[in-house]
Design a protein around this nucleic acid. Sequence first.
DNA 1: GCTTGTATACTCGGATACAAAATGTCCGAGTTCTACGGG
DNA 2: CCCGTAGAACTCGGACATTTTGTATCCGAGTATACAAGC
Lengths: 159, 159
Amino acid sequence: MRLGEGVEWGLHCCVTLAWLEQEWPVPTGRLAAWFDLPPEYLKKRLQALTRAGILASVPGVRGGFSLARPPERITLMDVVAAVEGPVEPFRCQEIRQRGVSGLGAASEFRRACGIATAMRRAELAWRRELAAQTIADLMAAAPAASAERTRRRYAQMGG
Amino acid sequence: MRLGEGVEWGLHCCVTLAWLEQEWPVPTGRLAAWFDLPPEYLKKRLQALTRAGILASVPGVRGGFSLARPPERITLMDVVAAVEGPVEPFRCQEIRQRGVSGLGAASEFRRACGIATAMRRAELAWRRELAAQTIADLMAAAPAASAERTRRRYAQMGG
DNA sequence: GCTTGTATACTCGGATACAAAATGTCCGAGTTCTACGGG
DNA sequence: CCCGTAGAACTCGGACATTTTGTATCCGAGTATACAAGC
């Protein structure tokens, strides 16, 4: 199992955008140069965040992206779900109903598959942890100097 | 994010093997027919479980697979890790150190990335839930008639 | 009839093709700024 | 000198290739069985 790298990109971009609130909107090219990422592909992922209502986009020559909600109201689960699409680590195929195993046991299948239930329990614990943390929490956990340094360096980038 | 279907196969096979303890070893062909799965590919996954020390394999004409440990000592985490390989949903690429973002902030990077920490916290919650449940728990949660029906039908398969 | 040797059929084990998804790239639609012409 | 208008540059948005991962399959190594021959 592996989570796409776009998740890391999206989270870092959200935190950076929160720190650069004064500079909104921020174009993709700036964010790509900021983290040395492929600009076009990063844009694709930011679009996904926009479709999910986490970012807001402005077209045109002075356009770019900005946060659509205050950082306190954007959870890590929101970002992961937006970038990865419908997240469902374990997908029960109901193989218990197939082959010899499924013959003459219809009554047992009215109850949910115990394996699917167990896997889903773990998935819910994961989602709960992600939903309990917000972009604001990440900002608070970062070194104190990060926010100020980010704003200063961004201004130095020129434009 | 998506977990390979081999996880479901592996878990169902472990439970079934536990119920069929009297019939060990059980060849791949039987298990494949049991759940209507591609035999060769299922074998590949059972080999992974064998390499991890969860199953034991016996070659030869009367060979097959059996549980290498009692069901109480096989956790869901063991099976998932064996089938999926090194499971690490979020893989921090340290993009914070790249591009403009990483200039002149070496001191901040001595501390772990807050985003990686947050994601890992969720991953650990997931692993904890998986490690807390065993194959024996799945057997206990299954309908009471399942074990007996499995043994009876397996005997009827012939051989 | 019993033992022994050999051939055979069936099993696991790893190396090899195929398909799907994630990654990366490209072109088109829209908006703002700028420059030029007119008043 | 000021205003209006038209052009151009820059941005987002979605559609199109390429690489990586997961899925599926094939052939080779090894072992217990069954059969036949010899004692």
